[in-house]
Amino acid sequence: MDGETVRICEVKTIAQGKGKLIRVSYEQRRRDGERQQRQREVYDNGNSAVILPYDPDRKTVLLTRQLRLPIFLQDGTERTVEACAGKLDGEEAERRIEKEVREELGYKVSKLERLLELYVSPAAIMEQIVFFTCAYSPADKVSGGGGLKEEGEDIEVVEITLEQAAAMVANGEIVDAKTVVLVQYLRGRMQAATRS
């Protein structure tokens, strides 16, 4: 996996649980031509998908509220509002996110719109996230959602207007980067559509 400017010297697994923490020693050729030895820790917890379902008639979105231990440890917030997401675990992104919407939000959705693929924290995390949106309506509800207890999920479904979600981003109530991207993307699209 060597590239034009990077040569991997050693990859060592430091810890492995749900994800894997590795230490990579590598040589990097700088822009000035000098070679520099570097070392970095990288966390690989797998790729994922995220979705923000939107009801165009009621102008609402579906979000989740749940415990995110890193955020709790950082600032004491016990339940974080964010978009529905899940690890791909080898599945196609579209198929996986449909399952996550059913498990977490309690809705059966179709006609997913794949928006973009991003790395949210590329300096230290290998995870690539596929972003989606889709239309939904109350008729698509098939259960109360809440996630899978056997996976430790205890998810509250939050249905609010897109404008309320944008206000929560603006006032710091929504701090999850992937959710911020989706809310702002969808809001920009809706504003552009109303101007047309």
Rank of each mutant, 00 (worst) to 15 (best):
E41K: 13
V183W: 00
S110T: 11
E98Y: 04
R38T: 06
E91P: 01
Q184H: 14
E82N: 06
Q28R: 15
P70I: 07
V61G: 05
F131M: 12
D140L: 06
K111I: 03
L148P: 02
Q28G: 12
E94T: 12
A85E: 01
A139L: 06
E163Y: 02
I22S: 07
F72D: 02
M190Q: 09
R58C: 06
Q39K: 08
I174T: 02
E156L: 05
L73K: 00
S137R: 12
V42G: 07
R65N: 10
S110M: 08
L69Y: 07
F131A: 03
Y26A: 08
R40G: 09
T77V: 11
G147P: 06
E10T: 14
V142L: 12
E151T: 01
K149Y: 02
S143C: 09
A170Q: 13
R23D: 13
A193Y: 02
Q164Y: 04
Q74G: 03
K149H: 04
R58S: 12
V109S: 09
F131T: 01
L21V: 07
V142S: 14
E10Y: 11
L115T: 06
P138F: 10
C134V: 11
Y43G: 03
E100Q: 14
Q66W: 01
P56N: 08
E151G: 00
I51L: 09
G86Y: 00
A123N: 13
A85M: 05
L52P: 00
R96S: 15
Y136R: 04
G188R: 11
V6E: 14
L116H: 09
D32K: 05
A165C: 09
P53E: 10
A165T: 07
T13Y: 10
R195F: 03
I155H: 01
V101G: 00
L186E: 04
D89P: 02
K20G: 08
P53T: 10
L116Y: 10
A15V: 08
Q66L: 05
V11P: 06
A139W: 03
K141M: 13
E78R: 14
E127Q: 15
S196C: 11
V158I: 15
F72V: 03
L118K: 04
D55Y: 00
G144R: 13
E10F: 10
V175K: 07
Q16A: 15
L73M: 05
V61N: 05
G90W: 07
Y119N: 12
E34I: 14
I129Y: 09
R96A: 15
I129S: 07
G86A: 02
A123V: 10
